[in-house]
Write a protein that binds this DNA or RNA. Structure first.
Lengths: 341, 341
DNA sequence: ATAAATTACTAAATCGTTTTAGTTTATCTT
DNA sequence: AAGATAAACTAAAACGATTTAGTAATTTAT
C-alpha cells in the first residue's frame, strides 16, 4: 500500500502541511527540510493521491478525447499525436468513442464533465447537428478543442485541415494529368469538411476553365467502401462518361475502384482516381491510391498544444481564450493517377 | 456549476447523510424521502463527484487499457470490444500506448496505479521480458487481465487466441490447396503467439506427413511489411523453392506478396500466401489476402467480462480469482490461396 | 402504562490532500 | 533590552462524498 501524506509526516515528525508544502516548493519551508522530505518521499515511493488532490485543486490532469470512429486509421494517428504530447505534459487520456452518433457524443461529454476532465479534445460525429452539449462544456469552464470535423460557430479552439485547398490540389492534380471530365463523390451536405472539399473541387475546375457539371457530383453519406462502389455503379449506369474522379475519402475511392475493376475499366488509364485522408490501406491496394494527406499526427499534436496554451492562460487570467489553427494538406501521388498526360 | 450533496441537502431540509443514503438506497431511509430526493436530484441534474466518492469507496469506475500499437487495426478492434462492454457497465477507459516498449509499459502501469484504476487490461509489448511491474499490479489488489500477447506465468485472468490451432488451420489450408513446399515466416522467438503459430505450422506438416525443413522457416522480428519483403527476397535468393507461405502476420504476408509481384511470381498460382490476424488491409489488396481471424472484438469483450466477474468476486470474497479463456480462430479464405488444387 | 423494538433520521468522523491563518522561535532594529 | 521582522513551521478548515454511531419519535410487546 502506498503511504499517505500523514504517514510521511509522522515518520518525519512534521505536520502534513509542512510535508505538502515542501513537496510543492512553498517558500516558507526551509531548504533543509525540503531536502529531507523529498529524499524520504522518493525512498518510500510516495505519490500524491490524484483524487484527493483534485478535491482542493480542481485539477485532474486528465483530458477526454472523443473520436467518431475508433477503427479509422486517420483518427488513430490523431490520437497518437495527442497522446504523445499529453504524456510529455503528465496528462492522462480518457477515451470516448461516439460511433458517429450525436447521442453517444452527448453522453460521453456529460460523462467526461462528471469525471472533471481538465479539457475535452474531440472531432464531431457525422450525425451532430445541434451544439448545446458543446456549449455546456464551455460554460462549465472546461477547455474544448475541436479537431478535424468541427463547427465554425462554436467559440473554442480548433485545429483543422484546409480542406478547400486540399480539394483544390486533388482536383488540379487530375486536371494536370489531362482529365477534363472529372466527377466528385462528395460527403454529406452537413459537415464543413465535405463542403470545403467540394468547394475546392469547384474552384479548381473554374480556375482551369472546365465547366462544372452538377450531374457529375454524387453524395456519399457514410463514406464507406460500399457506398463508393454503388455511386460508381450509379454514375456508370447513368451513362455519364468521366476520365477523373475525386472522392471525399479513401474508402469511397476504393469502392469506386473496385467497381471499375469489375467492369474492366482501367485505373488510371481510363479513369484517374484520387481519395482524401491517406488511410493505411491506400498504399497496399492495386493500383495504389493517390490521396491528400491530412497530417493526422500533427493535428493531434496541435490540438493538445492548443489545450495546453489555453490551460496556461486560464491559470493566470481566469478566462478562456481560443484560437484556430489551419493545417496544410499534402498531395500524395500514387498509381491510381499515374497516367502520362 | 453542478450542485453538491450539501446544497441538495439544504434545499430539501435534510442532512447530507440522508440524501446520500437515499441515493444509495439504504434501508433506513423512508420510501417517501427517497422519492423526494431522487426526483429533486434528477431535476437539478446532480451527479456524485467521482473523485470525492473515491476517497471513501476506493472505487474510481475507471479501467486502464494498455495497447502495444495504437495504429494496429487488430488492437483497435479489441479496444472497441472493451469500450462497448465498459460503457454498458458505467466504466470509463483510460488509454495507454506502450509503443511495444517495456519501459513505456512500466511507466503506464505506475501511472495507472497512481490514478487508482479499478483494473488494468493489457496486451504485453513485444519488448517485455520481465514481469515485476505486472506483479506489482496484482499485489496492489488491482485486477489485471491480459489479452493477446501475454505471459503464461503471471497469475491473472487471460484471454487469448488458440494460436497453435490457428497456425495449424492456416498451414492445413495451404496443404489442402496442394502446396507441399510450405515456408513459414515466423515471429520473434519470445512471444508465446509466434511460438504457438509456429508449433501449429509444424503440427500440420507432420499431421499431413510433410517433412519439416528448417531452412524454410525465417524470423520476422518486427512483423512489418518491409520485413516481409526482405524475408521473401532472402528466401528467393537462397534458391529454396516453395509453393506455399504462411506468415505470422498479415503485414509480413503483404510484404512478401509485394516482392513476389515484383518478380512476376503469381500469387496464388505459383505460391499461395496466407497471413494471420485479419487486418483491414487484407480485404482490399490484390490479390486479397487469406488470413486467420482472431476475433479481436470478441477478445476485447471477453477481457472486460473477465474483469467484471473478478470485480464481483472481489467485492464479496476479498480475494482475486482468475481464469483463462482461449478463443477459437477462424480461417478466412481469399484470393491469395484460391488456387484450384 | 412502561419497557423494548423499530423507524427514520442527524452528527460527526473519515478518505488524502491543499491552503489560510496562526504560532513559535530566532534575528534584527534602534 | 524591548519591540518589530522574518523564518519555519503547525492547526485546522476545506474539498465532496460515505458511513458509523447515536438519537428522537413512533410503534409494538407485555
Amino acid at each position: 500500500m502506498r503511504p499517505s501524506l500523514k504517514q510521511i509526516a509522522n515518520a518525519l515528525n512534521l505536520s502534513t502541511a509542512a510535508v505538502s508544502k515542501a513537496l510543492n516548493d512553498y517558500p516558507d519551508i526551509s531548504l533543509a527540510t525540503k531536502k529531507i522530505v523529498k529524499s524520504y518521499v522518493k525512498k518510500v515511493g510516495y505519490k500524491a493521491n490524484i483524487q484527493a488532490t483534485y478535491l482542493r485543486t480542481q485539477k485532474t490532469m486528465t483530458i477526454g478525447v472523443i473520436l467518431p470512429d475508433i477503427t479509422n486509421h486517420f483518427f488513430l494517428e490523431i490520437l497518437k499525436g495527442i497522446m504523445t504530447q499529453a504524456n510529455k505534459n503528465k496528462y492522462t487520456i480518457i477515451l470516448g468513442h461516439s460511433k458517429e452518433s450525436e447521442a453517444e457524443e452527448k453522453k460521453l461529454i456529460y460523462q467526461f464533465l462528471q469525471q472533471k476532465v481538465d479539457g475535452i479534445l474531440m472531432s464531431l460525429a457525422q450525425d451532430t447537428s445541434r451544439f448545446e452539449h458543446l456549449n455546456k462544456v464551455i460554460n462549465n469552464k472546461t477547455i474544448l478543442v475541436l479537431f478535424d470535423k468541427l463547427a465554425r460557430t462554436i467559440n473554442c479552439s480548433k485545429v483543422f485541415v484546409d480542406d478547400k485547398k486540399g480539394g483544390f490540389k486533388a482536383t488540379q492534380h487530375l486536371i494536370k494529368k489531362g482529365c477534363t471530365k472529372i466527377a466528385h463523390f462528395r460527403g454529406d451536405l452537413n459537415p464543413q469538411n465535405s463542403i470545403d472539399r467540394y468547394l475546392g473541387y469547384r474552384e479548381a475546375l473554374s480556375f482551369h476553365e472546365i465547366k462544372f457539371d452538377p450531374n457529375k457530383v454524387l453524395i456519399s453519406r457514410k463514406g464507406s467502401v460500399k457506398e463508393g462502389y454503388l455511386l460508381a455503379k450509379k454514375l456508370y449506369e447513368s451513362g455519364i462518361k468521366i476520365d477523373g474522379l475525386f472522392c471525399v475519402t479513401d474508402m469511397v475511392a476504393l469502392g469506386a475502384i473496385r467497381f471499375f475493376k469489375e467492369r474492366k475499366i482501367n485505373v488510371p488509364n481510363d479513369i484517374c482516381v484520387i481519395g482524401f485522408s491517406k488511410t493505411m490501406v491506400g498504399k497496399f491496394v492495386n493500383p495504389s491510391l493517390s490521396t491528400v494527406d491530412q497530417k493526422a499526427s500533427k493535428m493531434g499534436k496541435m490540438a493538445m498544444k492548443l489545450f495546453l496554451s489555453e490551460e496556461k492562460i486560464l491559470k493566470t487570467e481566469k478566462r478562456l481564450e481560443n484560437q484556430s489553427l489551419q493545417l496544410n494538406t499534402k498531395l500524395i501521388k500514387r498509381e491510381s493517377t499515374s497516367k502520362v498526360s
